[in-house]
Design a protein around this nucleic acid. Sequence first.
DNA 1: TAAAATTGCACAACCGATTGTGCTTCTGCG
DNA 2: CGCAGAAGCACAATCGGTTGTGCAATTTTA
Lengths: 362, 362
Amino acid sequence: MLQSIMSFVHPVNHILKNVPEGLLFMSNKQKETIYDIAQKAGASASTVSAALNGTWKKRRISEKTAQRIIQIAREQGYTTNNQARALRTSRSGLVALLVPEYNRFFSNIAQTFSQEVRARNLCPVIISTERDPKEERHIVEDLSNWQIDSIFFVGSVSPEDLSRQCKDAQIPHVFVDQPCALAPSVVTDNRAGALMLTQQILASMPAATGDPLRDRVYFLGGDRRLPSTYNRIEGFSEAIRAHAGSVAPDQIIARTYAKDAATQTIADLYGQLGGLPRGLFINSDSVFEGAMRFIATLPEDELQTCAFGCFDYEPFGQLLRFPVHMIRQRHKKLVQRAFWHLEHTTTPVLEQIEPELYRAKT
Amino acid sequence: MLQSIMSFVHPVNHILKNVPEGLLFMSNKQKETIYDIAQKAGASASTVSAALNGTWKKRRISEKTAQRIIQIAREQGYTTNNQARALRTSRSGLVALLVPEYNRFFSNIAQTFSQEVRARNLCPVIISTERDPKEERHIVEDLSNWQIDSIFFVGSVSPEDLSRQCKDAQIPHVFVDQPCALAPSVVTDNRAGALMLTQQILASMPAATGDPLRDRVYFLGGDRRLPSTYNRIEGFSEAIRAHAGSVAPDQIIARTYAKDAATQTIADLYGQLGGLPRGLFINSDSVFEGAMRFIATLPEDELQTCAFGCFDYEPFGQLLRFPVHMIRQRHKKLVQRAFWHLEHTTTPVLEQIEPELYRAKT
DNA sequence: TAAAATTGCACAACCGATTGTGCTTCTGCG
DNA sequence: CGCAGAAGCACAATCGGTTGTGCAATTTTA
């Protein structure tokens, strides 16, 4: 039933697509309505409507009549007024994506989302929330007033609230990247990814310094209260424990995704340790960028004393003066699976997508 | 008159914003309409409408009545059905941004756009065109069916066609980054930027090799048929001429923005010259990324033989093993000026925004 | 050949807002 | 007191589609 929500498409725009170029520029007159077409075809508006939106069989319009109407509509360059349709059907044909911001990861998601939506002949609406719960609420409220067909939440701050709000407004929805207990969610397998990445970092670590505080891997950035970071910490810890026996609390610094904070944090850490640690697990690309602002200022030989890993894929990460292992999240698959859930279920399931490890050449 | 199009805002959503949290989750019933509110208030629908959308003074509704209605609407958690409003007023409250793809630059634009639109209490619709003129056409067609209020075109492929199409559908529109002869356009001053960047490259060039083919700066990437690249080539050439007297045609390789092509091109060039040239003007961040895939494979000392400049700002560009000068386009200003034009004029003017030069530490 | 079923279509209500118009009631002024 | 004008509001049309229903013409069935 949710399936129909997504797959239901008004064929009129398809039918009318092959309009000769010239005709589209033709009219400066008011846009034509089904009533105009009806008149020209000598039929009623309802017949025209049925012919154009593909329900003519169901409504027992003869094929001949339907074709005649379609032909005329083509010639006139008719296109449907979406508001009118949406008002009557209470389906807008709009599908929304809410992202926290436009960083590389979310932009990739947006790109895929956009393509998938348009492939379904719907209209993508992409809005950034600035990670503000109030803003999230308002946007959903807004979208609800647009009779939005469905909403994709990516990395949202308060998933459960949003899900309740959507359910209340009867809006199908799905969560990506950040899970929700109340709705279908598709997330990267953060634990597994972090495990892989940490193992890779451990494997690439340079020789020990002798200082126990420096001879370990630090986890940097993100917000441990959020599930994604939480699970990455789990995977990180598992790998560390397998390697070193235990994880110290101060090995994990996960309070925020903010770039500036990351710059400060790594600088502080460097100060405390009297140098870089032997391994650094960088959580997310924004933290990567922030941390790099400090790290890039270090002399060449210092950079070789640390094994870097970043949980996010940044193409330029391959081109730095030092190797950086990276985890690439499969944004295409994330989005595609999210569509699948939207179209096939409404129960709260959590699907995990295994990310890829990019191993830097050392 | 166009001004009103953008600045016209229905206050109802403002008025009703401070709804107690609890109430929003209240109803599983059908969404309320002005008729429901009318009944509860003992007033007519038209009075309710006027009270809520702020026209009550003009319609000579007493303040007392208006306040009472607003109060009731608040309590009931009423919100406007945008389709109905749009159908009646033929203004959707939607503003579209068409981008070629979601790279760093366009994502920044999208971010700013999104904020500006929401600040005006409208709804941003961001769609990527994949640089396909047919797709562009269809999208505009679609948007026109949504009674879109206005359209921002960023880096579009066929501006004049699109402008005609919009004019025909009476859609206010503006071009960003890629100018249009028929409509207001806001673009980076590509010529000036390229001039600055080239001068900086020239100033940072390492010692001459003696090989005249290697002892010059090459312009890499982009599509010279597009104005932005064309103007960058102009600025580039001006700087080169001032420095070396003349520009050779084979110094300029500008056929495409594609990443893979860039990788191939720089590899070929490297092969031909038997090494990197002494200076490289890289046109756009995608070309940068593509070129870097090859350049990063080179040994350390080779990298010092070339002065790099990139026309686009990429934070990670600062963190590479070699200095890269960059031009930063002012995306905020571009978008804000575009809004200004949309709100104040409709005549085809071209506004150029001076970009910033980021000088790499050498 | 009449009754039944089916085909082909038109009519009109409806979605939920906005807006032109007009009917009361009230106020002010001569 | 009478009348002009304003104040306060309700009615109904309207935007452009969709959809339930009904009627006539045609075809099928008995």
